[in-house]
Design a protein around this nucleic acid. Structure first.
Lengths: 121, 121
DNA sequence: CTGCATCCTGAGGGATACTG
DNA sequence: CAGTATCCCTCAGGATGCAG
């Protein structure tokens, strides 16, 4: 399964943060949970179009191990599991905010460039 | 060679930023160039212990394509090439700063945890 | 509904040798 | 010095099927 190797030693802070955030859907999961507060498994799945069950579970488990996500299991039938961010997870999201801002600027740049290219031909 | 696919469409800013930053050494290259201002190829290589020539060149080329790095070639013998950050690259570095801070905090946390574990046995 | 087990692929990355 | 060119391998991630 998800092997969860690495986890240090890290050469710098970025390195440590990237180790926790890298994974195709993790940033999105972070955003989704931060935005909605609490989400069930199926809700997350719907909120992340294209994610497979396997990757969603795997990412959630790793994020739980990393102390970013809290997993609350209700022993019912049918089963219900709710995911939410821990304080640590929320702080990561805040630290990620400027990067998101930068990325949005970059998307704008690319869009503008693309428009110029298309106009040129 | 480095195929450089992706580059959008992006679902959010983080997504776009991660696309540019992911790559085992990119954050470190960013930091190295920001810290030293201008670096030659061999200097970067020495500053990133463990990087292979292939990956260093590949990452630098991609970062150049992404408008983060400026590459100045001096046609001399022996050849000299100097790398530096563009304004866009410096702005990315700034956007990365809070994440680095968060990562350093996490390293501290892990260290403390490890100490507790080692003390317990 | 919320997962776990399995198999498989492809891209990212390492090692090594060669060149202008 | 500053790269190219090749080969190889690992492993994140996708597809599918089964289970409590």
């Amino acid at each position: 399964m998800g092997n969860r190797n690495r986890r240090g030693p890290y050469v710098c802070g970025i390195d440590a943060a990237m180790d926790v955030v890298s994974g195709k859907w993790k940033a999105l999961i972070l955003w989704e949970l931060d935005h909605h507060g609490v989400r069930r498994f199926a809700e997350l799945r719907r909120g992340l179009p294209g994610v497979s069950e396997k990757m969603l579970v795997q990412h959630l488990r790793e994020m739980e191990d990393d102390g970013l996500v809290h997993r609350e299991v209700y022993r019912e039938v049918p089963p219900r599991v709710e995911y939410s961010l821990t304080g640590h997870g929320r702080s990561l999201n805040e630290a990620l905010a400027p990067l998101g801002e930068w990325g949005r600027g970059r998307i704008g740049r690319i869009g503008a460039e693309r428009l110029r290219v298309e106009a040129a031909r």
